[in-house]
Design a binder for these strands. Structure first.
Lengths: 188, 188, 188, 188
DNA sequence: GATGAATGAGGGTTCATTCAT
DNA sequence: GATGAATGAACCCTCATTCAT
């Protein structure tokens, strides 16, 4: 089977968009990294913006998948949080760019309706978890949208710091940060 | 007194860079918003990139100023954290763009040495605070660079959510988030 | 076979640079005359200045070629001078712009090292000829750099006058001028 | 008396136009060299092009003056040529730029009617001299416009070589070149 | 299907010229 | 009269996109 060009293009864009940003990434750059002709990209994606949106949806979808898959519905809130945190960091470790890419391309000027909906789907998953925790009196009573930044923000930033080489990713580190984030959320 | 054009240009750029990003902001856009001719911008800034760096340094400097000014050197770690959190959120409230602008333009491709140093100055201020707290056994023993995201990240994200209109900024909200962030940092 | 765009661009630039000068020639002008898109020029030449230098080197190279090719090494000084004068004027007749172009673009602000070297190569060819003539006591004892203007200058100017339509180019004219130039050089 | 600003501006332009060419010389450059404000230039000259033309006419006028003044109407052709050659080189020595400036700015796109007429006046002076010499059978029978390059061209080029520092200007040099040029013109 | 040469709209930037001081 | 800050037209150049091969 021939190598999957569409996959190559998406992989190359992901790296370049993450590294340089959408605007600073040129189509020829993507073509070169993906080892395809520039015109080939237009066979798979209507234009650069559509490519971005496909990529964005794909990445967000993967995260939602990672979070939903095997989610311990009936476990304790703490255990559910562990699942979320663990899956998020594992995803980040396996696919370092995706997390950063999503975070730095959440621009309504670039994302279409569908991409934005997809991201809201992710937020809703997190909101639901938080609300259940609040109903059980375990998670602090603040608007969920104010709570999400308390663990999602640190995770994203953490991978940025790691990527810059300023921090080594170890299980201890993630365990420590998880504990901190949980302390941020839980009622004391 | 004549209006200060340089100030107008910086103000306009700040808003546009924050809103659209550096690359998606054109010089004519800045000129129009600042109500000056496009050429005028080049009387004050060598080029668009220099303008970005001036702005970046200015904003980071203001934050450092806000944090250092009246910092309670001899107060408790908790009180010092309150100072930092309060000044940061007050700065964000008074100057909503600046915080977001800095966070979204920390690109080594765009920032020169001096700008990066200036930002490190800010990080060092926060690192010193965290280390003192750790020496007193009050703040958890994790690398400071892993701790900074635990309160700096949420604050930045919070203002993004606020700017998108999804959340109203109230004293209660900030007080609540401060408590959460402190819980994330402190030893339990 | 497709038309050679690079060749078209060089031909168009040669005419325009000669007619209007480098600074007064815009890239769109070149594109229009060469019947290519403006962007196409940048596929073949890094920028306008590189185009100028390519053109300059090409033209100087052609002259050197025309002079060296079949140069009568063992003939008399007079015959060698005839060769030089004849080839120079024939070159000027066949390629009217090139001579004028070179003469009017010998600007160290525009020419790079390599272009300047190439021109020195041409000068050296002429200097060597003059020195041999001086050693044989046939050409007057003045610095070669003062002698070159005595025949190279008039030839260039002659083609300027011709181009302005003030003079018709005939064999008699060139023969007459050659005789004059030789009289300028030779010991009487 | 205050320093003559108009004179300063012309002097500064002469140097810059000669050194860099008309197009590569900016009005602020002239202002700085002339030690006046940029706006001041427009008090004396309608625009940059008018300044060029004033300068051109002034320089050509000075040469005509230098040639006409004390011209030995009734002397021999050889003596008349000596007068012309001597005055031209003396002018070049005293005012190195002017000669080069004129030669490199003889562009119909830049010069107005009047400037071109003024230059024709200079040419006519030279043409008259040549025709008289031809009538006396002393100067070769070629179109005067083909003869002028034989001594005017070398003189201009000579000062270029001198300015580039490749040749020292001495009386012997000029005497030698004069002899050569005369040999080019005279009937043998 | 795949390519990359070609295009031209639109960006950053310069600079001749104006005009309020 | 003199100034130089301000302007905006016009430059050079980039790059998303097309299309002949």
């Amino acid at each position: 089977m021939t190598t999957n060009k569409k996959e190559d293009i998406m992989q190359a864009s992901l790296m370049l968009f993450t590294e340089r940003g959408f605007d600073a990434t040129t189509v020829p750059m993507i073509a070169e990294k993906a080892q395809v002709g520039a015109g080939t990209i237009y066979r798979y994606f209507e234009n650069k913006e559509v490519l971005l949106n496909s990529l964005f949806r794909e990445c967000v979808g993967q995260i939602i998948q990672a979070l939903s898959d095997g989610f311990p519905e009936s476990a304790s809130v703490r255990e559910q949080f562990h699942h979320i945190f663990h899956r998020l960091t594992r995803f980040g470790q396996e696919n370092n760019e995706a997390l950063t890419f999503i975070d730095s391309h959440m621009d309504p000027r670039l994302l279409d309706e569908e991409s934005q909906s997809k991201f809201i789907e992710l937020l809703d998953f997190l909101r639901r978890f938080l609300k259940r925790g609040q109903q059980q009196g375990i998670i602090v009573q603040l608007p969920p949208d104010a709570l999400i930044p308390l663990f999602y923000g640190p995770i994203v930033k953490l991978f940025l710091v790691i990527r810059d080489g300023d921090l080594k990713q170890t299980d201890e580190l993630f365990a420590g940060v998880e504990e901190c984030c949980w302390n941020a959320l839980k009622v004391h």
